[in-house]
């Protein structure tokens, strides 16, 4: 059986990557933080060296920002093709795989023509491996040239408020909210629910809310128990951020809006009447 190399950290995404990696061979692992402070070129260099030393048949990593970044650098350095955010992969010549496009709104079946496939696995699309942890490979001291790009400092998040990515409830507004001031009723309901405020891309592009509030493909991907979407049509850009939501309530005047058709619960009508009515009902019951 051939050997494969897996770049891993403590995340579930890493153990999901391990699941696909096992289909290509016997895994060995390298830690994402093998070089501290993080220096992505040094990690990529260590992966390249270990891949040669062990003559691995493939290299895997989680499809996180860090995983994609390091494998892209490995691909550039070794002149090999790289398939990012795969959800399935089968070894062979060529290897066949399925990967995410458009933040998961579209699937691509592809062939990867490569002597050593470089693959990242899209988080939460494959079950996590529960087998024994693979044996870690040794990492030698990095070359100076590979330390030019390294983390030199860390800045804490600017808003001390609720993190969208971790919020259990999110009240989110779209173009239908109408203005920056229109978010007052969204904030009021969010306050009553202990919820974070979110929004669609149309809202951040208009400058009504900061980009840190944006849910979607180019914003934050969220996993709340309840997501309340007010006046959001549901473009693929937005839906790409909602796949992890347990329950979606859509409030919209257009019953045919994509989000109304892809929600668990819907209320049809004017959000400027409905949202304050929900807040009033919560207050009444307290």
């Amino acid at each position: 059986m051939t050997t494969v190399l897996v770049l891993m950290d403590e995340s579930d995404a890493s153990r999901q990557a391990l699941t696909l990696a096992r289909q290509f061979g016997e895994p060995r692992s390298m830690r994402m933080d093998a070089v501290k402070p993080f220096a992505p070129d040094a990690v990529a260099a260590a992966l390249a060296r270990a891949a040669d030393d062990l003559n691995v048949s493939a290299v895997f990593a989680p499809g996180t920002d860090r995983g994609n970044e390091v494998i892209a650098r490995l691909a550039a350095r070794t002149g090999l093709p790289f398939a990012a955010n795969c959800i399935a992969a089968t070894p062979g010549d060529p290897a066949t795989l399925t990967r995410l496009r458009w933040g998961g709104s579209l699937l691509e079946e592809a062939r990867l023509h490569s002597p050593r496939p470089l693959i990242t696995v899209a988080p939460h699309t494959v079950p996590a491996d529960s087998g024994p942890a693979p044996v870690e490979v040794d990492v030698k001291a990095p070359a100076e040239a590979d330390l030019v790009v390294r983390v030199v400092d860390h800045v804490a998040p600017s808003n001390g408020g609720l993190s969208l990515a971790e919020a259990k409830v999110i009240v989110s507004g779209g173009r239908g909210v109408g203005s920056k001031e229109g978010f007052a009723i969204i904030e009021d309901l969010a306050g009553l629910l202990g919820a974070a405020v979110g929004c669609s891309r149309a809202v951040t592009s208009a400058g009504w809310r900061p980009h840190s509030d944006q849910v979607g493909q180019t914003g934050t991907k969220v996993t709340p128990d309840v997501y309340i979407a007010c006046g959001i049509s549901g473009a693929t850009q937005h839906m790409a951020g909602l796949k992890g939501a347990k329950r979606i309530l859509a409030i919209n005047s257009d019953p045919q809006a994509p989000l109304m058709l892809n929600a668990d619960y819907t209320v049809t009508g004017d959000l400027k009447e409905i949202v304050p009515a929900i807040s009033a009902e919560i207050r009444k019951r307290r």
């Binding site: 058709l261 892809n262 619960y265 009508g269 009515a277």
Partner: peptide, 13 residues
């Protein structure tokens, strides 16, 4: 997702 209607307008609160 089932798109269950909870009603229309403020009366759905």
């Amino acid at each position: 997702r089932r798109a269950e209607s909870l009603g229309a307008g403020a009366g759905a609160a």
